[in-house]
Design a protein around this nucleic acid. Structure first.
Lengths: 212, 212, 212, 212
DNA sequence: CATGAATGAGGATTCATTCAT
DNA sequence: TATGAATGAATCCTCATTCAT
């Protein structure tokens, strides 16, 4: 009645965001299981049935959280690591965006991530996100390789990328637990580990297990 | 008549191991929360009260699992990576032992590890183990550094070590999820990432963030 | 259609009273330990979770019963024994109110009282109530004393009051166990014991242990 | 073999006493329900099956405790209050013996008594003991009455006796809770309350409720 | 739209009690 | 005799989820 627009459903969208905010807070504070729908509803300043009406079951709610936070993070990274940049530049910017994001959403995203790993229902959701990251990183490595006229089997690349992503996640955990730590600095450290190691690989230097 | 009775009235030590075996299985199958003491007892072929009598509360039981598996793993690694070996040799053997262990205890240790990360009560226990690993790895790096006449701030070393451990854990997760994968091969890959990257660092090569 | 539905969706205050009623019944029937929350809920015609939601833990529930019944009783006594009356009149009216209350709430209050004495968690709660009663009685005695120009050490008075209260409690137990007995009559008997004995004391008559 | 006596069963009797000692300790420390057979066995320095073999079920064990302590107390009182003494002397000696017993067995008997009141299975046992006491006290009163050429209905006497016993029990509870208090002194106080009140009654002095 | 009222279902934990050695 | 091993049976309590207003 107040505006001519036919949409009067915006409030709903707003409410949903509030709920997700609350859910993220509570899930991160308590962990998935220890979090109760009661607490989430209360933290959102709304009654429980509303939460169910809007976001569905506890599991669905958690997935929604995962989704929103994951998407935000991926977008932050994607926006920073534009494909037209050189590989090292992309990696660096990507890492900086990643750790920046984690630093800014410490108790939120980092703990959500930590939660999702343990609970089977969300393994898939998380694996998908991680796979996207791995793919991106592998792509960077491949790009750099080709630029130097080299080539490495896809599987090989993927495993390396997987390791790099894993290292980053661990440092992110560490960062999330150390409020005084500087995200940018953490990114630099990770870049050192990643790029120097990967760089060697790209150059064909490999370490060989000693013949026993 | 003497050996006919199938499985009854075993000595405590034996039953405790059976229970721990069952607990590891069930925790890894279901996750910490979804696992019920009923199922664990049943899987161990014993009644619930015995579990409580011998291993205590669900939380204590989980800690006991963590402990046993963690100790086994640390011993496997320690036995392989003798301190008198040169640093790269130590690292390599340690990694091989680590991935070998994970490969052999796939559904056990790897998933336990995965569980322990998520649940606050066990964060401490796990952090301790991880810290020991990080310390060992940092020690290797430091050793190698000094052998080359170089030196790096302890904190710096630790962060690198942390990243390497994190990468290894990620690959271990991956290994645990891919029954067909070869532990040794995974170890080799990790060694490549670790040693080449770390090697560069040790030699004073560092990557610098571009001045923006 | 409007008044047809038998018993559903009542306001909280009502349900709480129903639950307390049921709890008093069951606790008195079975004793604190033997009473199960299941039985209480069933007797209240409601599901267990509601009991927990409204009145909390079994212990808290019992305390709530204690509280309600205790308050009711104290009010009954206080209303009857107005402070401006002469001491013997007050004592008499107080006793009459007390035994009247017990007679009317036989299976309720009397047995609750009986329960609370045995269980350590409630000792405090009960001691407080009893202390209030003792204080009131001691006050009556003191008042009467002063009216006659006499004085007795506070401790001494308190012990006498304690004994009188104890005697009343015992008779109350007896009354609770004898449905055919008349509360008023019991009160008269108690008054006889109390007032005559106390009266003597107040007059300075004391009994002395024989020198051995 | 060592002594000629055919009885080699004495050890059993000794063991039973040890167990009862332990049981009394534990029951009084924890209360009937909170006491566990495990703790009792441990406190007795013996294995659980032994306790069952000797003293039977937990309930039976408690009854046995009740019995032993009750008997001891009644004997102490009976021994002190010889029937040939004058009534006041008997009452005084009986009270002194009673409070003396409670003072000496504070945590034992007093708490047992406290326990037995609450639990239905033992109500009977306790009622019997109390009835004996009441009977004895009523007998004293009756005796004194007749000595003065008076007579009172049995019921009436009983109620007065009941009140006196109740008052004594309350003071005993109080005594059990105040380790520094002197049993003899407590007995004197009780005697004052009892004898003066009863004395009046015996003399035909009665208090009458005001005609309303 | 919004909520207080209500519950089914399930999980941890404890104990008295009894075999089998 | 004496005991370590073992369990059936309860009981408390919590939570996700849904009506009825």
């Amino acid at each position: 009645m107040s505006s001519g627009s036919t949409f009067k459903r915006l409030p709903r969208a707003v409410r949903e965001q509030q709920m997700l905010d609350a859910a993220v807070r509570v899930f991160s504070r308590r962990g998935y299981h220890a979090a109760s729908m009661d607490e989430i509803a209360e933290d959102a300043g709304i009654s429980k049935p509303m939460v169910y009406a809007y976001l569905g079951t506890k599991e669905e709610l958690f997935v929604a959280c995962l989704h929103r936070e994951g998407t935000r993070m991926m977008q932050a990274i994607a926006a920073a690591a534009a494909p037209e940049l050189p590989a090292d530049e992309r990696l660096w910017r990507g890492l900086r965006a990643f750790f920046g994001f984690v630093g800014a959403h410490r108790d939120g995203w980092a703990v959500l991530y930590r939660q999702a790993r343990g609970e089977q229902p969300f393994a898939g959701e998380l694996a998908t996100m991680r796979a996207r990251l791995v793919e991106v990183v592998a792509g960077m490595l491949d790009h750099a390789l080709r630029a130097e006229g080299r080539e490495v089997a896809g599987t090989e690349l993927e495993v390396v990328a997987y390791a790099l992503v894993g290292a980053s996640e661990s440092l992110a955990d560490w960062l999330a637990d150390h409020p005084e730590a500087d995200p940018e600095r953490t990114a630099t450290r990770m870049m050192n580990v990643a790029w120097l190691g990967a760089g060697q690989l790209l150059r064909g230097v490999t370490w060989q297990p000693p013949q026993r």
